[in-house]
Design a protein around this nucleic acid. Structure first.
Length: 505
RNA sequence: GAAUCGCUAGCUCAGUCGGUAGAGCACCGGACUUUUAAUCCGGGUGUCGCGGGUUCAAGUCCCGCGCGAUUCACCA
């Protein structure tokens, strides 16, 4: 089956150019005795960016005798008789090459004319010069064909814009659109910055199971699979929370994990079925410490890619300002015009929600706390544009969060919103094993009532809490969204190298 | 899940009222020692997303399906 698909694919995409290039390759081998795929190394001493920097001040029509040794992919080539210009790119930059017949020699020049195409990889020896027109150029003295491309590059000035091909054949996107490479370099720097900040606070990076028998730690539908040897159903993780708290119980101290979570839900511009989450847990800390850490992490990440001024979806934000704080009840008062402090019964709350047009969103059994959350999601969430900590979540919707001792129906929890989207979720971790068991029982009831995203009952986790979890502050941050907001990417697919795609029929 | 838009050469796109599938780049052959969207001469490379239907005739009209994008719904 798989082989069949591959061979079909291979043949169906053999267009005229590919056929010509394949024949050319065979002729290169037979006529020149040269196989472009046998080279294994090239001692590159200079990147194109370093060459650009070094010879920045070189004047037009000047040359520098220093020998340079570099390499890259030929992006365009202009062959004109006894001289040839080409643009070569590497991962750092792009530069013009100049081949002259009396500089590289007749034999190598003819080889170039006859065999070298756009897309090919060349090793280059030469020196810097600047043309009359001011273009920094490498005067090539020697070159070596390191590898050949037999599939043509996307068109040279429109590039590749077809979103479907860009996502399915990301390698073509990366070749044709260097700014895409920048986004993923920034992604890497942001994640490194997170690690540096966490480690500067003495936090240990750990790895916990992706495959397990129970997928807990969040309210979401998991991916299900089957382990043949064990003969059991297994699930892909939806969060790492419960494992990291077990590690705090196990006296590992401050721990964090940056890794992939999997949620079997819809795909849109904010959601990919696999996404990267950072979760961190600090013993002897609470949700206030996590607020400070969230600001520090995000600010440092922004600095690591060069600026605290960010723009997303046409909205500019200044991350140097302290993040705002608002409670869920305040947000509902401000944006839905409902004063929840006057609400005393569940029925009264539901009546208000129906009044606000949310009747179709309710089953009629909601508590006033569920209604509060509903009102926030319907009217408040989209208005939290400036980085804002949302506080005061009801206990009912926070099964892993410590209660506010002043008002046990609410918790010591926050969610951080930016541009109207959630980017972080944190709380003072519930460490009362009796309460935790009751919360899980409540979730199990909700599951039994048909809520297939209710939290799973994890007996071993309770066992761990029973062994004693210190007071702990914990937080999860959605890395893909952070990368989106810091790079201005409008779709999560633009910050994930190989986003989930449905196979073509 | 719904709506809207898109799918034509390797890439970017045009294709009128239903009447023999086009352009630029890329590619192939030729000329050319400072070009840079090189230029000049010659060459069009195609399952018009897939399948039906209407018609003398369908890239074009109708129906169904696929994939993608966006918005909404769902969902942390």
């Amino acid at each position: 089956m798989a082989e069949e698909v591959i061979s079909q694919d291979f043949n169906s995409e053999d267009n005229e150019v590919v056929r010509q290039r394949k024949e050319k390759l065979l002729r290169l081998r037979s006529e020149e005795g040269y196989d472009p795929y046998v080279n294994e190394t090239w001692d590159r001493k200079d990147t194109l960016a370093s060459i650009r920097e070094r010879f920045d001040t070189l004047q037009p029509e000047q040359e520098d005798g220093t020998e340079l040794k570099t390499a890259g992919r030929i992006m365009t080539i202009r062959k004109q008789g006894k001289a040839t210009f080409a643009d070569m790119a590497d991962e750092t930059s792009r530069i013009q090459l100049y081949f002259q017949i009396n500089t590289v020699g007749e034999k190598d020049y003819d080889f170039l004319k006859k065999w070298v195409d756009t897309g090919d990889w060349l090793g280059i020896v030469g020196h810097a010069c600047r043309t009359r027109r001011g273009e920094l150029t490498i005067m090539v003295t020697e070159y070596k064909l390191l590898s050949k491309a037999i599939r043509p590059l996307p068109e040279k000035w429109h590039g590749l814009t077809d979103t479907e091909i860009r996502y399915r054949k990301r390698y073509m996107d990366l070749i044709a659109n260097p700014e895409v490479r920048d986004v993923f370099r920034k992604r890497s720097r942001i994640i490194s910055s997170f690690r540096e900040t966490l480690e500067s606070h003495g936090t240990l990076e750990v790895e916990t199971p992706i495959l397990s028998v129970l997928a807990g730690g969040a309210n979401a539908r998991p991916f299900k699979t089957f382990h043949n040897a064990l003969g059991v159903d297994m699930y892909m993780r939806i969060a790492v929370e419960l494992y990291l708290k077990r590690l705090v119980v196990g006296m590992m101290g401050r721990v964090y994990e940056i890794g992939r979570n999997f949620r079997n839900e819809g795909i849109d511009t904010m959601h990919n079925p696999e996404f990267t989450m950072m979760e961190v847990y600090w013993p002897y800390a609470n949700y206030v410490d996590m607020m400070n850490l969230a600001e520090e992490l995000i600010r440092n990440a922004a600095k690591s890619i060069g600026t605290l001024e960010i723009e997303w979806n046409g909205i500019k934000l200044d991350l140097s300002k302290p993040f705002r704080k608002i409670t869920m009840r305040e947000a509902v008062k401000e944006f839905a015009g409902v004063d929840f402090d006057t609400v005393t019964s569940d029925e009264q709350a539901r009546a208000i929600a129906r009044d606000k047009g949310l009747g179709s969103e309710m089953t009629g059994h909601e508590s006033k706390f569920a209604v509060l959350n509903l009102l926030f999601e319907a009217f408040g969430e989209e208005n939290l544009i400036e980085p804002t900590f949302l506080l005061g979540h009801p206990t009912e919707i926070s099964p892993l969060s410590k209660r506010d001792p002043e008002n046990p129906d609410y918790t010591h929890r926050f969610e951080l919103f930016m541009f109207g989207k959630e980017v972080a979720n944190a709380f003072s971790e519930l460490n009362d094993p009796i309460d935790q068991r009751e919360r899980f029982e409540d979730q199990a009831r909700k599951k039994a009532e048909g809520d297939d995203e209710a939290h799973v009952f994890d007996e071993d986790f309770i066992n761990a809490i029973e062994a004693g979890l210190p007071p702990t502050g914990g937080m999860g941050i959605g890395m893909d969204r952070i990368v989106m907001f810091l790079t201005g990417a409008r779709s999560i697919r633009d910050v994930i190298l190989f986003p989930a795609m449905k196979p073509k029929a």
